[in-house]
């Protein structure tokens, strides 16, 4: 059996202390295989976003371990960790986090800029990924002037610019109307099927979750085997 691309053991995460103490995660063990598509489903406050942040190495767990491609994340130095975040992971945020004053192309090539890729190559790769998402004609527009669906496609383009192996999406369709959301979903599943990119998505939308290969349900910081809410 191949090494899972992401693997967690007994992850815990606690926010605050004393009376304000809140256990966001209470021992989560999970293996995600290469090329899989996984939906992390749960209500607000269930700990689903915390789990995704820990998987993406954006946060450090209180206890437990995260292994990336068989390597323990704790053993990675700051530089290697940054390189890993930059080259292996792509993020699609619900709130987009686009720089409205910059052009679409400038937003998309930000990860490449951080990686230290030269201006010419940046442009070429940025345009290639925009073409893939049918946004090439918007490359010179200011990001602030786009519609919601276009913005989300720009965010996906930005996440893909560095050819990541894992794409994390936090409520990717949460801010979109259902028709536009459908288009964005199709793009994400297309990337998963045709380019083998592992897709990990956090959502409370059961219709969206149903399209995934695998669903992980989370409640009160623990994984639960069945979709109780849905069943109920």
């Amino acid at each position: 059996m191949p090494v899972p691309i992401l693997s967690t053991r007994d992850l815990t995460k606690t926010y605050g202390r004393g009376p304000d103490r809140f256990d966001a995660l209470r021992g989560v063990s999970l293996d995600i295989d290469r090329g899989d598509s996984v939906a992390i489903v749960g209500k607000s406050g269930s700990g689903k976003s915390t789990l995704m942040h820990l998987l993406a190495l954006l946060d450090t767990p209180g206890a437990g371990s995260v292994h990336v491609d068989g390597t323990d994340a704790r053993s990675l130095s700051g530089r290697k960790l940054n390189a890993l975040r930059n080259q292996m992971f792509g993020f699609v945020f619900q709130q987009f986090f686009l720089n409205h004053a910059s052009t679409v192309l400038e937003n998309v090539v930000l990860p490449l800029k951080i990686a230290g890729v030269g201006a010419r190559e940046r442009r070429a790769r940025g345009m290639a990924v925009l073409e893939q998402l049918e946004l090439a004609d918007k490359a010179r527009n200011k990001a602030g002037n786009l519609s919601g669906g276009q913005k989300q496609r720009v965010v996906i383009a930005r996440a893909l610019a560095n050819n990541p192996r894992v794409l994390f999406a936090d409520e990717p369709t949460g801010n979109l109307d259902s028709a536009t959301g459908r288009i964005v979903e199709d793009i994400l599943f297309d990337l998963n099927h045709n380019q083998g990119i592992t897709l990990i998505t956090v959502t409370h939308d059961h219709d969206l979750a149903a399209r995934f290969n695998r669903r992980v349900y989370i409640r009160d910081g623990q994984l639960i085997t069945t979709d109780e809410e849905h069943a109920a």
Partner: peptide
């Protein structure tokens, strides 16, 4: 703040 967070999430080091 959010932009800095985004850049750090994308692997930008504290030094940069």
């Amino acid at each position: 703040t959010r932009e800095i967070g985004l850049m750090k999430a994308m692997g930008m080091g504290s030094g940069s």
